[in-house]
Amino acid sequence: MRYSYRMLSGILFLGSVIGMSFALYLEHVQGLNPCPLCVFQRMGLIALGFFSLLAFLHNPHAQVLKRIYTALGSIGILWSLGVAARHVWLQSLPPDQVPSCGPGLDYLIDALPLKSVLQQVLSGSGECAVIDWTFLGQSLPVWSLLFFAGLTLLSLWQLFRPYR
């Protein structure tokens, strides 16, 4: 079966909408406050959705534009994948090795330069190691990692496949 560039861009956009909808459901309906790593994962998912929507709506004929849209979306979802992997790693640490909880993300953004905020958040904190939601015995970061891996594979296939 042959998948068009536009259809795959639409699927990637739909995947990002589903992922963000689930995250917002957990936050606003289930009452789970996202930790800083969760917020950073959302940023990459939103980037994938944004560039996939642009690609879907524009549906460029030039191969270079197809690659640019897909590369930018791929960078976003690779970011999410990497942050989710870090999150899973933090949750797997023994309790005595978990970093202590630091100030909230809002405070960090207000008080520090962006580079310092990124360093602090990506180093993780105790709040990111807390497992407060599971499904089939796996935490939310594990499921996020699997979801992002699927979107990453689809995005990279879209990026590197030959176009006619």
Results as ranks from 00 to 15, higher is better:
residue 1 M to E: 09
residue 4 S to T: 15
residue 10 G to A: 04
residue 10 G to W: 08
residue 11 I to D: 06
residue 14 L to S: 15
residue 15 G to R: 00
residue 16 S to T: 12
residue 16 S to Y: 08
residue 20 M to W: 11
residue 20 M to I: 14
residue 21 S to W: 10
residue 22 F to A: 11
residue 23 A to F: 08
residue 23 A to D: 09
residue 23 A to Q: 08
residue 23 A to S: 11
residue 23 A to N: 04
residue 25 Y to G: 04
residue 25 Y to S: 07
residue 26 L to F: 05
residue 28 H to L: 10
residue 29 V to K: 04
residue 31 G to R: 06
residue 33 N to P: 00
residue 34 P to Q: 06
residue 34 P to C: 04
residue 35 C to A: 14
residue 35 C to F: 09
residue 35 C to Y: 06
residue 38 C to H: 01
residue 38 C to Q: 00
residue 42 R to T: 03
residue 42 R to Q: 13
residue 44 G to T: 10
residue 44 G to W: 03
residue 46 I to H: 02
residue 47 A to P: 03
residue 50 F to A: 13
residue 51 F to R: 04
residue 52 S to K: 01
residue 52 S to T: 08
residue 54 L to I: 09
residue 55 A to V: 04
residue 55 A to R: 03
residue 56 F to D: 04
residue 56 F to H: 07
residue 57 L to T: 11
residue 58 H to G: 02
residue 58 H to N: 14
residue 60 P to D: 09
residue 61 H to M: 08
residue 62 A to H: 12
residue 62 A to W: 03
residue 63 Q to I: 15
residue 63 Q to H: 09
residue 68 I to W: 10
residue 74 S to A: 15
residue 78 L to Q: 06
residue 79 W to V: 06
residue 79 W to N: 07
residue 81 L to V: 02
residue 81 L to D: 00
residue 82 G to K: 05
residue 84 A to K: 02
residue 88 V to I: 09
residue 92 S to Q: 12
residue 93 L to E: 00
residue 95 P to T: 04
residue 95 P to F: 10
residue 96 D to E: 15
residue 96 D to F: 09
residue 97 Q to L: 13
residue 97 Q to H: 13
residue 98 V to K: 12
residue 100 S to M: 11
residue 101 C to T: 15
residue 102 G to L: 14
residue 103 P to Y: 12
residue 104 G to W: 01
residue 108 L to Y: 12
residue 108 L to I: 12
residue 109 I to C: 11
residue 109 I to Y: 10
residue 110 D to L: 14
residue 111 A to W: 02
residue 112 L to G: 01
residue 115 K to T: 15
residue 116 S to G: 02
residue 116 S to L: 13
residue 117 V to C: 11
residue 121 V to N: 01
residue 123 S to C: 08
residue 123 S to Y: 15
residue 125 S to Y: 08
residue 125 S to T: 12
residue 126 G to R: 00
residue 126 G to Q: 02
residue 127 E to C: 15
residue 127 E to S: 13
residue 129 A to M: 10
residue 130 V to E: 13
residue 131 I to K: 03
residue 131 I to D: 01
residue 133 W to I: 04
residue 134 T to H: 01
residue 135 F to W: 14
residue 135 F to I: 12
residue 135 F to M: 12
residue 137 G to L: 01
residue 137 G to Q: 05
residue 138 Q to T: 02
residue 139 S to Q: 07
residue 139 S to C: 06
residue 141 P to R: 05
residue 142 V to K: 06
residue 143 W to T: 06
residue 144 S to Y: 09
residue 145 L to S: 07
residue 146 L to C: 07
residue 147 F to A: 15
residue 147 F to G: 12
residue 149 A to C: 11
residue 149 A to N: 04
residue 149 A to I: 05
residue 150 G to S: 08
residue 151 L to Y: 06
residue 151 L to I: 07
residue 153 L to A: 15
residue 153 L to S: 13
residue 155 S to Q: 11
residue 156 L to M: 08
residue 158 Q to D: 10
residue 159 L to Y: 05
residue 160 F to Y: 14
residue 161 R to T: 11
residue 164 R to G: 14
